[in-house]
Design a protein around this nucleic acid. Structure first.
Length: 486
RNA sequence: GGGGAGGUGGGCCAACCUGGCUAUGCUUUCAGCUUUGGGAGCUGAAGAUCCGAGUUCAAAUCUCGGCCUCCCCA
């Protein structure tokens, strides 16, 4: 008997596991003929929409309003902020010709929208009554990545939300940065079950144009880190470049204090499927699953019509209770259907066969643990709800437990290299996270392939008295986290 | 940035080195029969040599160019 099933080992060979799950669960089609651009298929986009909704709800609760800005940015806008243009210029897609005519001024496809939005903010903001201004947009951006592209993890077009805020004071802007980090915690960790650490990036690794950058770093199953939502304190750098200013309470013209925050939905999805998936395929948190409950009729000769009718009735009734439900009435055998829906990560399965017709109790199977139980028809909605919560909780707790074991320490280059081979974050003493520490970070990169991710936000990681920088041997001012990076 | 590998029906592959008949097998899809509690079986059908040029009586196969993809390392 030919076995064409999903049979890949996430722990032993994550790279193959990831490629196969993306292909077999029909998440992406890589055959589109523009390099670095992929087609997102319904099964992942249905989850995307739920993820967008979760972030948008949080953003609106913290005072943001939605807007949509143009995808094209005139070159003139780009040139205004020096660090920004240097940071992004190498990766831009340019529109140079329109309807057969060469353009006098090139138009960039936005790699991020500061330069589109702040042009307008300058017009919109006059005085204190216009502040704070808090706007987000859910959109695509384009960066011509030269590193190897991988679906969801890194592509030349990606889908995200970007929130851009302007405040009258630095203190308010700093508070917003903390709010953004809390949003990430509430959504990505508590709802999606993806653990992470917020790092304050070293001086040399800030967002181009930012005063401070905080990046949420998660981990993939192979122990490499992946940057997730980052939030940036922009200070007045962009405000000065784009003349985003207001009359303050003293009647003086003052530049606005800005922040921006960017959760990349497609990238977070990469973490969700990688962290929770297992060797049967996807495992999805209950609230992100495109289909939460699949009803599988198990046929028996002579009872075909009754069983299908019952299965459809159960599905319809559950749909009426707010579940997203699929009833798989195809002619495949039950075993085929179990595997099919497990590969796609559907959290709960309800079986409807002759036994259920007889007893009025349904076999319910949960995807995360594989456990089966019998549930009376009347109790089905309540029990499925309970199991849904239990699945999401279980996934988060399992991920947290695994994540907690990925933190290591080292006090020398040799220890660091060894620790990095095991995967995860390694805490090491470093002389400085100001620009004068950059050479040491580069040395670490060259000798261990590890990236200095920064200092843990809100952490109490202080070097001991005698600690010295792992790279240069000078007294260490900081404890930084190092990891290999996607 | 550096190094590999590759492109044949929707998917995976054989044939390529050594040019030659109706392009192999599995899977998929469709029709029919049959079956269904962890990837069933039978019969029939549909569907392919990346693009361009060259060599040749003859190109999936050889040569050159282009496009595209994947993997590994920095």
């Amino acid at each position: 008997m030919a076995f064409d099933g999903f049979d890949f080992d996430k722990e032993k060979d994550f790279s193959t596991w990831y490629s196969e799950v993306v292909k077999r669960a029909e998440l992406c089609d890589l055959r589109y003929n523009v390099k670095g651009f992929v087609v997102f298929r319904p099964w992942c986009v249905m989850s995307f929409k739920k993820m967008y909704a979760a972030f948008e709800k949080e953003l609106e609760a913290s005072g943001h309003r939605p807007a949509l800005f143009p995808a094209l940015v005139p070159e003139e806008n780009f040139l205004k902020e020096k660090e920004h243009v240097e940071g992004f210029a190498p990766d831009l897609f340019w529109v140079t010709e329109v309807a057969g005519n060469k353009l006098g001024e090139r138009l960039a496809m936005r790699p991020t929208s500061e330069t589109a939005m702040y042009k307008m903010y300058s017009l919109w903001i006059q005085g204190l009554s216009d502040l704070p201004l808090k706007i987000y947009q859910s959109c695509q951006v384009w960066r011509c990545e030269t590193k190897a592209t991988r679906p969801f993890i890194r592509s030349r077009e990606f889908h995200w939300i970007e929130a851009h805020d302007v405040f009258a004071t630095m203190e308010e802007a700093e508070a917003q940065v903390r709010t953004d980090m809390e949003t990430t915690e509430r959504v990505m960790h508590l709802q999606f079950g993806v653990p992470f650490i917020y790092f304050k990036r070293p001086e040399w690794d800030k967002f181009p144009g930012a005063v401070e950058t905080f990046g949420a770093d998660s981990l993939m199953p192979d122990g490499k880190t992946i940057q997730q939502p980052s939030t940036h304190l922009l200070g007045q750098n962009f405000a000065k470049a784009f003349d985003v200013s207001f009359l303050n309470s003293k009647g003086e013209r003052e530049f606005g204090w800005q922040t921006c925050y960017g959760p990349a939905i497609s990238r977070i999805y990469a973490s969700v499927i990688s962290v929770h998936g297992d060797n049967k395929g996807l495992v999805l948190p209950f609230d992100l699953a495109p289909v939460q409950v699949v009803v599988i009729p198990v046929q028996k000769k002579g009872l075909e019509e009754k069983i299908v009718a019952k299965a459809k009735a159960v599905a319809a009734s559950l749909r009426g209770r707010g579940f997203s439900v699929e009833c798989d009435c195809s002619t495949s055998t039950p075993g085929f259907k179990y595997n099919y829906w497990e590969l796609r990560g559907v959290p709960l399965r309800v079986e409807v066969g002759a036994r259920e017709m007889e007893s009025g109790e349904f076999v319910v199977a949960r995807r995360d643990t594989g456990e089966k139980e019998k549930v009376k028809e009347m109790e089905l909605p309540a029990r499925l709800n309970g199991l849904g919560v239990a699945i999401s909780d279980n996934l988060r707790l399992k991920a947290d437990a695994w994540f907690a074991k990925q933190l290591h320490c080292a006090s020398s280059m040799e220890e660091l290299a060894k620790a990095l081979d095991k995967g995860g974050f390694v805490k090491v003493p470093l002389c400085s996270v100001k620009m004068d520490g950059k050479a040491c970070a580069e040395k670490i990169k060259a000798e261990t392939v590890g990236d200095v991710r920064g200092t843990r936000f809100g952490g109490k990681d202080k070097p001991v008295h005698s600690a010295v920088c792992v790279a240069c041997g000078k007294p260490a001012d900081e404890v930084v986290f190092v990891a290999r990076q996607y």
